[in-house]
């Protein structure tokens, strides 16, 4: 058996296979529900209802999608250049840290503070990824290892700060920072509901990333570098500089997830602002085939599964772990579908 590239996959292939992937995911989910002793159709219905069944549910899904759009974009940008940034989690926390520092320590009025907090966060995230990428371009150190390990270093560093200098004196001993002042928070899009303007910022970033990738010389350089490093270098593309620029953009985007979560939702810095958004961003980006606009769709899809599964588990006797399994199977089937749209399997 071997793979033969397909020159022009027809509509049946390029639309049918992803649809089949989703259908297969639903089948696996149904089997799991059966295994847990619940009615599969009812379980799926509950997930769907919990994710999009009401205005509240839908806004909650978009809310959860917001950080995933940022981390998904961060991963999509980096992976295009074959820069394997597994450290979006660390960059997210670096962004969250600077958001809180600028927001609580400088005593600036809100309209000045918010943009400054965002800029500081972007800078912090970009610098967090700068180290690994310089080690990669200068010394050939594998960035998968360095970015992954930085996640743990960053968490421990934040933990140290929250137990020490940044600890909220009024926090009853909990490891959390002082809260941002009211006017240094992102306003809500709809009054009374939790969805905040971080979501709007995420959409703008997705559009901006798409423009960079498809319309600018930098995007062209990033794609060339990722597809063929040797060819790009021969053509005069400064591949190391491109890597560094890619890293700055990627780290900045991931950091905005931290900014948006702190300034839009939580109001202060704790060690649980991210339940692995940085890692889930990899799934989001892969499902979107690294397309920035696709990232928005896949982030909402992934967030919907999480929010829906949470809500379902409150109503039925099926554990929320089903969300993780659903995501994993959706990813595997989707990757397979993507491969089969580009290649056909032939015998001999």
């Amino acid at each position: 058996m071997r793979l033969e590239p397909i020159a022009n996959p027809g509509l049946a292939r390029s639309a049918g296979l992803p649809a089949a992937a989703i259908a297969l995911t639903v089948v696996v989910a149904s089997l799991l529900a059966l295994l847990a002793g619940a009615d599969p159709l009812a379980t799926l219905g509950l997930i769907l209802k919990g994710a999009a069944g009401s205005k509240f549910a839908l806004l909650e899904t978009l809310n959860r999608a917001t950080p995933l759009i940022f981390t998904g974009l961060a991963v999509a940008v980096a992976f295009r250049a074959k820069l394997w940034n597994i450290g979006a989690e660390a960059q997210l926390y670096a962004g969250a840290l600077l958001t809180v520092l600028v927001g609580t320590q400088l005593g600036l009025p809100g309209p000045v503070a918010l943009p400054l907090m965002a800029l500081a966060a972007i800078l912090a995230g970009a610098l967090t990824l700068l180290g690994p990428v310089l080690l990669k371009t200068r010394l050939g150190v594998d960035e998968v290892v360095t970015t992954l390990l930085l996640n743990f270093i960053m968490l421990l560093f934040i933990s140290m700060l929250l137990e020490g200098p940044l600890k909220d004196p009024l926090g009853m001993g909990w490891p959390k920072s002082e809260a941002l002042p009211r006017d240094a928070r992102l306003p809500r899009i709809v009054d009374g509901l939790r969805l905040h303007w971080g979501f709007g910022l995420a959409l703008i970033c997705a559009l901006g990333t798409w423009v960079i990738q498809t319309r600018t010389t930098l995007g062209y350089e990033i794609r060339a570098t990722g597809l063929n490093l040797q060819g790009a270098r021969f053509a005069g593309i400064p591949v190391n500089a491109v890597m560094v620029k890619t890293a700055l953009i990627s780290g900045g985007l991931a950091a905005l997830a931290g900014f948006s979560e702190v300034a839009g939702l939580k109001g202060n810095l704790t060690l649980d602002i991210s339940p692995g958004f940085g890692y889930t961003g990899i799934i989001v980006a892969m499902l979107a085939m690294l397309n920035p606009l696709g990232v928005v769709v896949s982030a909402i899809f992934v967030a919907g599964i999480f929010v829906g599964a949470d809500s379902m588990s409150r109503a039925a006797e099926v554990p929320t772990y089903i969300a993780d399994i659903l995501l994993a199977t959706a990813l595997l089937f989707m990757v397979l579908a993507i491969m089969l749209t580009r290649f056909r399997v032939v015998r001999g």
Binding site: R215, T217, Y220
Partner: peptide, 26 residues
């Protein structure tokens, strides 16, 4: 670059120059 189109390959050595790019936009 094998996965680039002929268009993208044709400007591989000149993509930064006019008329293919102006102020960073392709």
């Amino acid at each position: 670059i094998a996965d680039f189109t002929l268009t993208e390959n044709a400007v591989l050595e000149s993509y930064r120059d006019e008329p293919f790019a102006r102020t960073g936009l392709m």
